[in-house]
Design a protein around this nucleic acid. Sequence first.
DNA 1: CCGTATCCTCATCGATACTG
DNA 2: CAGTATCGATGAGGATACGG
Lengths: 138, 138
Amino acid sequence: MSPTLDPASEGCVAARQVLDRVGDKWSIYIVMMLSGEPMRFNQLKRSIDGISQRMLTLTLRSLERDGLVTRTVFPTVPQSVEYRLTALGLTLLAPVKTLAEWAQANAEDIQNARFAFDAISINSEGNATAGVTRVRFG
Amino acid sequence: MSPTLDPASEGCVAARQVLDRVGDKWSIYIVMMLSGEPMRFNQLKRSIDGISQRMLTLTLRSLERDGLVTRTVFPTVPQSVEYRLTALGLTLLAPVKTLAEWAQANAEDIQNARFAFDAISINSEGNATAGVTRVRFG
DNA sequence: CCGTATCCTCATCGATACTG
DNA sequence: CAGTATCGATGAGGATACGG
């Protein structure tokens, strides 16, 4: 079909930009947590297992900077801060879900491929037939 | 619509798995380069600007391990090695393109949001009205 | 409650040099 | 041509402590 996409092409560059944005350790979790309702800082912190206060702050700031999330301070005592997806942030959910669906659909295949690959690696790969060293499975 | 996705839910975990797979610096470029035709090692190296021999090898191995790419050695002199997307690897192109399209559609909005955010940061953020410190733009 | 500031660790990645 | 081996720099990210 498509005749090889040049890495300098718009599509490649664009893809990498989203990945730089959302490919880090925590952004996805935060975006998905906010997909339903706005949440407060510590509420997010408790919901996302393993995230440090530092990384939650940093990731939220960066999402806010990119216009995906708004931060609203309520002058209660003690203060409370609410984070909410913007309209732009909401549109991000669709492509992310597409990605998640691909993952769920193919997780098993990938697992099998890994097992097969690792199994061969252990056997020190020896028996290549006619110069072809391809992983075979199934 | 959706009532907040738990980060431990399948969708979240799945999404992070793909991102771990394809969110690194070079995988996307390689997958997209191979989307049209199979390519040889140095051919890839020349095509992907800035990639080191080391990272090309590592990334290709990891793609091979996950069953996204096949590696075929031809016993020519000097030897040549051909990399090709598997059927599974080809299916990855669709979700990646979805992501790329989102990026292209919203790149400008994100840029504007960044400019706005950075501008406010410089002004030392001062004038919050009624406890709300939201970035406003447009 | 919602952060910021420091320190420290570990993985990632580039550069370089060397083999079949 | 297609790698592997080694080293060093950089930065992401956790732990902890403190401030508004």
